[in-house]
Nucleic acid binder design. Structure first.
Length: 220
DNA sequence: TGCCAGGCCGGGT
DNA sequence: ACCCGGCATGGC
């Protein structure tokens, strides 16, 4: 397939999803900081569980950079229990707030104003922040055009023959970023739609999707 | 009742 | 450079 054909295909799939499901209003979070916290808490975890954890943080008035940074790790871990991996995620949240405090003097505004590539490298250097979490923060909190790749992305586009089996994060990301305009709004909505159709019709143990909006894009 | 969910790290080959 | 076990709760 030529680059032009790939672009056309990606755009066509986006349009079908967009027609089928409409605007997704992502990321589900009230503030950029809440988005960052959610990005960590949702690692390999159902979003419904994350919501409970975030509700606990809100109830305890800890959902701000300074309050979370100052909170005892014990308390933090207890509050985010419903999101699973609570000990490790408490540390990761601490690492993240320490990063903002150390490099940007505790200012999210300064952090978001930083050069996107520099910020991405910085985030990837934080223990517990991998490519998906970093890109989620960049796209949904900092409004920078980085395409977020997750398990759903690989599954959905793998089944449609646009991604090879062993494809690594960067390769998948390149498929999108190399063939679509660098548009925050587009990347935001596209990823949200992928998650939507992934949850609904492309689960692990449901090999085929009868009546799936993307049926006509199936390979072969 | 087991399998799965919007990953990532550290240690072993 | 890959491969794997560990991390943990809640929903179906």
């Amino acid at each position: 397939m030529s680059d032009r054909q790939i672009s056309t295909q990606l755009t066509a799939i986006y349009k079908v999803l967009s027609r089928a499901y409409g605007p997704q209003h992502w990321w589900p979070g009230d503030t950029p900081f809440e988005v960052m916290v959610g990005a960590v808490l949702t690692q390999n975890t159902a979003w419904t569980n994350v919501e409970k954890a975030i509700a606990n943080l809100k109830k305890s008035r800890l959902l701000s950079l300074s309050r979370l940074h100052g909170a005892p790790g014990r308390q933090l871990a207890f509050l985010i229990r419903p999101s699973g991996y609570f000990n490790i995620k408490a540390q990761r949240l601490k690492s993240l707030t320490a990063f903002v405090a150390g490099r940007y003097r505790g200012s999210l505004k300064r952090m978001f104003a930083d050069d996107p590539r520099t910020l991405r490298e910085g985030l990837l250097g934080v223990n517990g922040i991998g490519p998906e979490t970093a890109d989620s923060i960049l796209l949904y909190a900092a409004n920078r055009p980085y395409f977020v790749v997750d398990a759903y992305t690989k599954r959905v586009f793998g089944r449609h023959g646009l991604i090879a089996d062993g494809a690594v994060y960067h390769e998948v990301q390149q498929l999108f970023m190399g063939n679509l305009p660098a548009d925050v709004r587009l990347y935001n909505e596209y990823h949200a739609l992928i998650v939507r159709i992934g949850k609904e019709r492309c689960k692990k143990n449901r090999p085929l999707c009868a009546g799936c909006p993307l049926e006509k894009f199936l390979p072969g």
